[in-house]
Simulated assay, not measured.
Amino acid sequence: MAKPPNGLIDRLLHRRVMRRWEKVADRAPSLSLPSLRRVRSRALQLRELLDRVLFEADARLTLPLVGSNAFQKPLHSDWGWRPQLWRGPIYPPGAAAAETKSRFGDEVTLFHDCRVSELTVRQIRNTREEDLAPFGLRMDVFRFDGSFLSLVIDLPQGAVQGLKRKHLVRLNAVVETEKPLEIFARFNVRHGPNTEQIVRELPLGEDEIMVEFDLAYSKLNEKRVDSAWVDLIFEGPEMNQVILRDVTFSRRPRAEL
């Protein structure tokens, strides 16, 4: 285990560094532009390290506990899952001017067709008393010149092992928006060369959102199920902030008649 940086020498070094940056901050308004560029470069390097420390500290010192997979599942569920992005810290935690196909963690990918991206995506730490997920995802959308914006969540193999047409797959989410917009969830299952798709609109305005995908009405070939993923599609996202506080999935067999 690494020795904690709290000895006398460490404290003295910390005070010295703080005094140095305090002087730099006081002199910044009067620095020449070349000097200011050099100072800015060093400050950005320092901020990157500080952000890493603060992100890890917030992740470990704040409730809900990091790694929590606790959430309510329907009775008789045979599978349940919270993606990594809402369960534990990812690095880097976000991106400004996020490009299409940017990945956040191992399972979430951003897609859009903007010519100029004015989209910021960042993982945030949930701290509200009612939050069950340790982390959330915040998207700030400014000018949007594209025709689509979506998050693709790759489901693990556990989601498709033993998947049958008798199954109901449930998506639960906690969503906050700055102003109203439409969000659709599209459940995709690949079986052999074909892909089944079921689309549901998320009923926004509720504390916790739930939609179910009923495979009974699909043409799923149960013997050839290969993989599954969910697209969250945001309609008209311009000049809006969307926070996904939690996203969870579960499945259960339909009751026999």
Rank of each mutant, 00 (worst) to 15 (best):
F187W: 11
L31I: 14
D58A: 05
T109R: 04
T248S: 14
G192N: 06
A97M: 09
D154K: 15
V199I: 11
D246F: 00
R165Y: 05
A255P: 01
R87M: 07
S250K: 02
V230T: 09
M18Y: 11
Q197L: 09
W86Y: 01
P180W: 01
G162K: 07
V152R: 15
R252Q: 12
E118N: 07
V169G: 01
K73D: 09
I209D: 03
V169N: 05
E22I: 14
A216W: 15
W21F: 11
L168D: 06
D10C: 11
L137N: 01
S77Y: 07
Q123P: 00
A43K: 08
I153L: 06
A95C: 10
R252W: 12
V116P: 00
E212M: 03
R254L: 13
P253G: 08
P89T: 01
G205S: 06
M1W: 08
P180I: 09
V108L: 13
S218H: 04
L44Y: 03
A43S: 11
T62D: 00
F213L: 03
L119E: 03
T177D: 12
G7N: 14
Q241E: 14
L65F: 03
W86E: 00
K23F: 10
K101E: 10
P180E: 13
K101V: 06
L13V: 07
E196L: 09
L36Y: 03
I9P: 00
R252E: 11
L85D: 02
L63F: 02
V116I: 12
G105S: 09
S250C: 10
D26K: 14
S250I: 01
A25W: 05
Q45P: 00
D207H: 07
P83A: 05
R60I: 05
Q197V: 14
K73W: 11
L36R: 06
G67W: 00
R170W: 03
E222K: 05
R245Q: 10
V247N: 04
L36I: 01
R165W: 03
R37Q: 14
R115F: 04
D140L: 10
L61M: 15
Q72N: 14
L155N: 05
S68F: 00
A133E: 01
D26H: 13
E212S: 11
H167Q: 08
V53A: 07
D113Y: 04
V24R: 15
R186A: 12
A95M: 09
Q72E: 15
R128G: 04
R186N: 13
L50Q: 06
G236E: 13
L13T: 09
P93Y: 11
F234L: 15
I198W: 00
L31W: 08
G158L: 03
A228Y: 12
A95N: 00
L163V: 10
R252P: 02
R60N: 10
R138F: 02
G88E: 13
L61Q: 13
Q84E: 15
L110W: 03
V53N: 07
P203V: 11
Y217M: 04
G67F: 00
R128L: 06
Q157R: 06
Q197S: 15
F104V: 12
P64E: 13
V174D: 02
